[in-house]
Every structure is written in C-alpha cells, then in structure tokens.
Design a protein around this nucleic acid. Structure first.
Lengths: 233, 233
DNA sequence: ATAATAACCGAACAGGCGTTCTGTGTCAAG
DNA sequence: CTTGACACAGAACGCCTGTTCGGTTATTAT
C-alpha cells in the first residue's frame, strides 16, 4: 500500500528565500524574475529545481504561474504572510469601530496583521508612512459617532494605529479609561504625578490621570484618513 | 548639407495607443507585455516596427528598455502625461499651503495635474477613492496654522480636492470670501436667499452669504489625510 | 522633379527562457 | 533491507522573445 506523506504547512528556508526574492524583484523591477534569475540569486543549482519549487509555491497559493510565457508568474497576496508588506501599497485591516463606549481591541506590540479581504481593509501608500515603518503591525479602526471630536476626528474617519502599551510625550494614543468605561484618542504626556491626556482641539481641556490610577494604552495613532464620499450633515 | 527635421513634441495616434496598452497591461498583469503582444494588440504588422516605435518612446522618456531581456521595458512616470493615472497608486501634486489668509489656487474644473516630483506630492491608493474617480484632476493643499479647526482639520493636514466652481448641498468646499479676504473649508448648502457655509464642528456657527454677495468656490474636498509623524503640540 | 528622411515591413536570426527527461540521493515507513 | 516519496540535478529541447537585415513606401524639403 502506497504511503502518502502529509505535507507540512511550514515552509522550508529555501521557499522563504524564494518568496523574499520574488517580492523584492517585483517591487524593484515591476516584473517578475525569470527562472534563471531565481536560480542564480537564490543559489539553486538547476532550473528544474526552481521549476519544482515554484510548482510547490503555486500549489500552496503563494504564486500563480502562466504556462509557457516568459516571466509568467504572479504573486498573490498570500505571499505577504511570509514576507510582510512590500511594494508601494500596504493593506491594513480595519478591525472594527471605535467610539467612546466601545472597548478597544486587546493587541500587543509586535503583533502582525494580514488580511486578503479588501472589503475590511484600507490601502495606504508606503510613501505616506515614515521610512522606517514596515507596516506589518498596523491596523485601523473606523470612528462611529461624535465622541472623538475632541481629537479633531470625525464620525466615519479611519484611524490607523500600531499596537502600543506605552507612549512618548506628544504621541497620540488610543486609551481605555476603565474608571470611566471609555475609550479616547488624545495626545499623551507624562506629568510629575501622573499623566495628561491632551485633546487635539486646543479649546478643550485635558484629562489628568493620577499615577495610582489605571490607564490602558492600546495603540498609537499613526494616521487619520477622512473620505468625503458620503454626506454626513 | 543634411537637414535635420525638428522632432515634434506631439505624439502620433499610434504612439498614444501603444502607451495606453502598456499602462493597461502593466496594471493588469504586473509585468510588461512582450513585443509580439504589443504587435497584435495595437495592430502593428511586424515586430520590427514595434521595436522602432519603442525606441522612439524611449528616446522621448516614456519608457526605459533593458536590452536582450524578455519583457525588458519599464514605464516611467512621464507616461501618465499621456494616459493619466493608472495602477493602484495615484500621485497627487501638493500645490501649496492653505490657511485663512492665503488666496486659494485659481483652478478650473477639468484641469488635469501631473507631477513627477514626489517631494511635492502625496500618493493615494486608488481603492480609497470612489470607483468613478479617475484621479487626473486631483490636487492637494497642506494646512498651515489653526484656521481650519472649524472644519475639523488640523495644522499639517493634507487636503485632497478637485477643482470646482459650484457644489451640491452637503459637499465640503474650499471657498474664497473676498469681503473677508479669507479662505475657508466648510460644508456648502444653498438656502432660500443665499448660501450657508456650515463648519464641520457641530458646536460652531455657520456663515450665511446673501445671494448678492460674492462667494468663490475653488474646489471640493475629496479626502483629508493626517499624518502623525511629527509632534504638533 | 529630386533627394533625404521617416516610417514601415517580412523574414531571419540569435539568444532568453520555461519545460521535460532521465537520472541520483535522502529519508521515512514497513 | 526494501520500497516509495520527495528533493535534487545536469542536459537538452522547444518555444518565446528581442534584434537585425535588407528592403519598400510615404512624406517632406528643396
């Protein structure tokens, strides 16, 4: 009886190297590499092995191959599970709503996000982010209602953040205040005897939190996007 | 004596068709077409004519060719002068600042913009724009100071607009008020005897403009982007 | 009318490139 | 130890693809 070995979901080191090269080459050249370019760059001794590996990567959904066409392979979004965001666009998942009364997602720094579902995501040009930002741990929340007005943030705005449990002075953070059962977006400052949460609107007063009080920072705001495609008044 | 004819800056109809096909194919396939694919799609009878045309397009800066490489041509940004924005990213020129005391650019609907200088531009993912928006007539202004706070727009925000001289009820417009010598961003409404300019911040009062008064609409706001890369407090 | 230049063209060539063939080596299971 | 599956490998093949050649035709300038 013929035994069939179970295919592991984990990728080999060589597969990962191939996927990384494919992403880099595509981002840099606006075309995929040839089999021979993969061969020499990833240090594989023959084109038939590259062909064998590409067939495996296609079976697992990372690429699509067009037969008998030069440079006939295309990357699928699944490749970003392995190599992270690449190219000029970063797809950021929209995890849900944000409003004063809605608990914030419980996320940890270093968590990475990935979604293939463009319906629940926003695409951000990499050039809008700081050069050192890789984009793998960004997520977004969509503002519901007027409760973030003191942050100069409207109903419907998309708030792009990265997970954080601490912050530097002047950074805008998403904070859960357990005593008030409330989420808020404010500029964060450490004071002598506690924290100051400063609204973006300079005509509004800050919140002071004593050192003995609990303040749960959930994320740091990186960007806000306001689309005007729907009328809100 | 050999006479050298001056090369016209105008492109022929065939050159335009080639550039359009190159842009479409690249956006759809993430690779350039082969010479033979251009040949059959643009209805050119031989590969040597395609080669001749591509050499001309390269000389004029629309493409770059890698010799003796399959699918070895790359599109330059100059191609967008001819075919408009394509692909998943739209590069929008930032024409200058916007503040209450700064006159707005005098633009006409239908004007198209193009910039190769990424230092004075923002890149927007096409998926953030309405499906029918081509993106060729979008421009951006960068907010200076706190004078747009009643529009819920901060110092440093990037306001993306398209030229307009009229507006529908509920649209946010960039308006120049000659009597006040002032620019403002507000929601626009037609009233029985004039116009109402409604601040985005619901706690602030609108401006009423009588029908006999002059109100110059310069653009309609499409999107606002707020980057948090610098501290503003 | 003539000459020069640009545009075009089919055919052929040469190299780029993907795929297949026929093996060998390694590993795990029986 | 044997068997089967997987991974690997060099060589060869055939097709894809870009480039060149030796022309013709059209256009423009004189």
């Amino acid at each position: 009886m013929m035994m069939v070995r179970k295919r592991s979901e984990n990728l080999s080191e060589k597969h990962i190297r191939i996927l990384q090269f494919l992403a880099e080459y595509q981002a840099k050249n606006n075309r995929p590499p040839s089999i021979r370019e993969i061969c020499s760059e990833v240090d594989i001794s023959s084109t038939s092995v590259v062909n064998y590996d590409l067939d495996q990567l296609e079976r697992r959904g990372f690429i699509i191959r067009d037969g008998r066409v030069s440079r006939g392979l295309r990357l699928t979004d699944k490749i970003k599970e392995v190599v992270g965001a690449f190219g000029d666009l970063i797809r950021i998942p929209v995890l849900g709503p944000i409003a004063a009364g809605i608990p914030l997602p419980d996320l940890q720094p270093g968590m990475t996000f990935f979604t293939e579902n463009e319906a629940n995501a926003v695409d951000i040009a990499r050039s809008l982010l700081p050069a050192r930002e890789k984009g793998n741990d960004l997520f977004a929340l969509e503002v519901k209602g007027d409760s973030m007005i003191d942050a100069m943030i409207n109903d419907g705005d998309i708030v792009v953040m990265k997970p954080a449990v601490d912050a530097r002075n002047g950074e805008m953070v998403a904070v859960w205040l357990p005593e008030n059962n409330e989420a808020t977006l404010k500029y964060f400052f450490k004071e002598k005897d506690g924290y100051r949460l400063q609204p973006a609107n300079p005509t509004m007063k800050p919140i002071f939190i004593g050192k003995n009080k609990q303040v749960e920072i959930k994320g740091k705001v990186v960007m806000v996007i306001r689309k005007m495609d729907t009328m809100r008044m």
